[in-house]
């Protein structure tokens, strides 16, 4: 009996970790933290950097909020969360400036703005303040990863469409000298607008639309499947009815 209970808990922990990837993706599903998702996703590396910072802040603030959740009086919980979050943001900002200076310059104002990323305050309020420390940590890390994933996907399309290449080593200390993973030298991939402001909106809009489209296709397929099953059943019922009628007729005859 105890064994099954344990397994169930393990499962839910895994689900807790992975829920932010697709089902509850903060950017694509809940549209949280759109400001950084639009602003710093001009390149994959900047997206990656922002994602890492958010994972750090989100996990740490979730842990701390969960740790002290029982001591914080209800009426001052939001200011307390804000203080906690901005403490971590400041620390992260200082660390970035010390160890990834180029990234600090690229993300610029969006590092202090992590404070007002609704994702972080949202998780503190809705999850960390009600759950145990390890659950809160897993939730923060998973959600952060989901956020990072979304940013990197957006960054990939934007950087690829605007430069035809995916560069590395420019902002993050990933390599001794900067290089690029993909590099297609073609005029087709020099649509500057995608690297700049308008591209952010367009790429997220297009991606959301495509995701919706796929979801709708899937739903339609399921719908058709169901419809077919119903038809099939109807047909079978009709068949049986006919059979019965035939038998009846045969018997009568």
């Amino acid at each position: 009996m105890a064994k099954t209970k344990n397994v169930k808990k393990e499962m839910s922990r895994l689900a807790n970790f992975t829920k932010g990837f697709f089902k509850e993706n903060p950017v694509f599903v809940f549209l949280l933290g759109l400001c950084p998702a639009l602003a710093v996703t001009g390149t994959v590396e900047a997206s990656l950097g922002m994602g890492i910072l958010v994972i750090f802040v989100l996990t740490s603030s979730n842990v701390v909020v969960s740790l002290i959740r029982k001591w914080i009086p209800h009426q001052i919980r939001v200011p307390s969360y804000i203080v906690i979050i901005s403490t971590f943001v400041t620390i992260v900002g200082l660390l970035t400036e010390a160890y990834a200076y180029a990234l600090h310059g690229e993300l610029g104002i969006f590092i202090p703005l992590i404070v007002v990323n609704c994702l972080i305050l949202g998780r503190a309020e809705s999850y960390a303040s009600k759950n145990k420390v390890h659950d809160a940590a897993i939730d923060g890390f998973g959600m952060g990863l989901g956020f990072l994933g979304a940013l990197v996907v957006i960054g990939f399309f934007r950087e690829f469409l605007s430069t035809g290449a995916i560069a590395y080593g420019v902002y993050l200390p990933l390599a001794e000298t900067p290089g690029s993973i993909i590099n297609i030298d073609s005029y087709v991939f020099s649509m500057d607008a995608f690297g700049q402001a308008p591209g952010g909106f367009l790429v997220i809009g297009l991606l959301l639309g495509i995701f919706n489209f796929v979801a709708i296709l899937k739903r339609n397929k399921k719908e058709r499947e169901r419809q077919r099953m119903i038809e099939e059943k109807k047909r079978q019922a009709l068949e049986r009815k006919r059979q019965k009628a035939k038998e009846k007729a045969g018997a009568n005859a």
């Binding site: 549209l31 607008a193 402001a197 308008p198 909106f201 809009g205 297009l206 959301l208 489209f213």
Partner: peptide
Amino acid sequence: PEAWKGVPVSLITAGIMALAFA
């Protein structure tokens, strides 16, 4: 189109507005 209703089409609209402002 159904897939683009709501937020996606709004974002694309915003993108086109941003192009104009650029």
